[in-house]
């Protein structure tokens, strides 16, 4: 039986973005063949796009690793130690651009099924509930009915209906 996909909750490393934003992708290695056809897109990417990419993302270290007659692969390493390999044989340059950008923007979370799309460590801000939560102790020494304490609405629904009926009756007369 194949292993189950692990499940969990969404999480950010070191409360990223609260103080400042740190891009979580730390290095990308492009492995490709210098002569094989299935690395064509990767070679085009390296020739035409790589310098712009490195200029706009100085925090990501790029390595190029030519290997003879093997499939081209993008290896992205993240700050939390996670590493992702993406095989891109016969991919055109444009698609490789998109995949490199995709890997750069990831935060390196282990792939998992998210149980919910939101998460909090503190589900309650009022603490443990008890029957007297938010009850004012002055209620203990108040005598009812009290004009200062509004126990129910000033006018009940029945009263309101009766009033409406009375108004209609007066109009008819």
């Amino acid at each position: 039986m194949a292993g189950r996909i692990p499940s969990g909750f969404i999480k950010s490393a070191l409360h990223n973005g609260v103080g400042r934003y740190v891009n979580q992708c730390q290095r990308i290695t492009l492995k490709f063949c210098k002569e094989h056809g299935d690395s064509r897109g990767m070679r085009d990417f390296i020739e035409q796009e790589l310098l712009d990419f490195t200029r706009s993302n100085p925090g990501v270290v790029m390595y190029l690793q030519p290997r003879r007659h093997r499939k081209p692969v993008i290896v992205a390493e993240y700050l939390n130690g996670y590493k992702e390999n993406l095989y891109v044989p016969n991919y055109p340059k444009d698609e490789i651009c998109k995949w490199v950008e995709h890997l750069r923007c990831k935060q390196g979370m282990t792939p998992m099924r998210l149980r919910k799309y939101q998460h909090t460590d503190n589900p309650s801000i009022q603490g443990i509930w008890n029957p007297f939560t938010n009850k004012d102790p002055s209620a203990n020494v108040t005598t009812y009915p009290n004009p200062n304490v509004r126990v129910s609405a000033p006018e009940s629904a029945t009263d309101r209906l009766l009033k409406l009926a009375q108004e209609l009756r007066e109009k008819d007369n």
Partner: peptide, 17 residues
């Protein structure tokens, strides 16, 4: 094999701004 200490040092500073 793919390790360049100087490049890593440069990127370390840039990454943290």
């Amino acid at each position: 094999l793919n390790w360049n200490f100087d490049a890593e040092l440069y990127a370390f500073g840039k990454r943290l701004g």
